[in-house]
Measured scan of single mutants.
Amino acid sequence: KKVLATKVLGTVKWFNVRNGYGFINRNDTKEDVFVHQTAIKKNNPRKYLRSVGDGETVEFDVVEGEKGAEAANVTGPDGVPVEGSR
């Protein structure tokens, strides 16, 4: 997949743990970017399912997906594990 941007910060708009996807709002362009649970690189080690929490700040790369921009290599800021869904 073509990389459109790297090390982008954003805020998780919503994430559905059961369906394994959601959207992140980019801090720079204010665009919403699709995020799938497989894109989460560093999950909260205390959680079994990969997820990001609503309102959580995350860092990610933006790649060209089949339906437009999507997140890849999702971590917390500066590469720490994500907090995950509460």
Rank of each mutant, 00 (worst) to 15 (best):
K2C: 00
K41N: 09
E66V: 10
E31K: 05
V3N: 07
K13H: 02
D28T: 00
T57M: 09
L49P: 12
K1V: 04
D32L: 02
N16H: 05
N27Y: 07
V3A: 04
G65K: 03
V3H: 03
V74Y: 04
P45H: 13
V62Y: 00
A39K: 04
K42M: 14
V74D: 04
R46G: 14
E56F: 08
N27S: 09
R86C: 11
Y48K: 15
T57F: 09
P45I: 10
E83S: 14
E56K: 08
G55Y: 05
F34K: 06
L9I: 12
W14R: 01
V62D: 03
A5I: 04
Y48W: 14
V52S: 05
F23K: 04
I24A: 02
V63Y: 06
P81F: 09
G79L: 11
A39L: 01
K42Q: 15
D61W: 00
N73W: 01
E66T: 10
I40W: 08
Y48D: 15
V63R: 03
E66I: 13
I40V: 07
D78E: 13
N19C: 12
I24D: 04
S85L: 12
R50L: 10
K47D: 15
P45L: 12
N43W: 14
V12C: 04
T6H: 12
A71V: 02
N44F: 13
F60R: 02
Y48T: 14
D28M: 00
D61Q: 07
K30Y: 07
A72Q: 12
N44L: 11
P81K: 12
V52K: 05
D61I: 04
Y21L: 05
V52N: 04
R50Y: 09
L4H: 06
E64P: 00
P77C: 13
V82L: 15
D54Q: 15
V58G: 01
V74G: 02
V62M: 05
A5S: 08
K47W: 11
W14V: 04
E59V: 14
V82A: 12
V74M: 00
V63Q: 03
V82S: 12
R46Q: 12
G65H: 08
L9W: 06
K42N: 14
R46E: 12
E31C: 04
D61F: 07
R18C: 07
G79D: 09
E59Q: 13
S51R: 11
T57E: 09
K30L: 09
Q37C: 15
F34H: 06
F23L: 07
V3S: 06
D78F: 10
V63S: 01
L4W: 06
G76K: 15
D28K: 03
A39G: 07
G53S: 15
Q37D: 06
V3G: 03
A5G: 05
D28C: 00
L49Y: 11
R50C: 11
V12P: 03
V17E: 12
D78I: 13
G10I: 00
A69P: 15
V63M: 06
G10A: 03
T57K: 09
G65P: 03
R46C: 11
P77V: 14
G22W: 01
T38P: 03
N27Q: 08
Y21C: 05
N43I: 11
K7T: 02
N73V: 00
R18F: 08
K7L: 03
G20C: 07
T38F: 05
T6W: 06
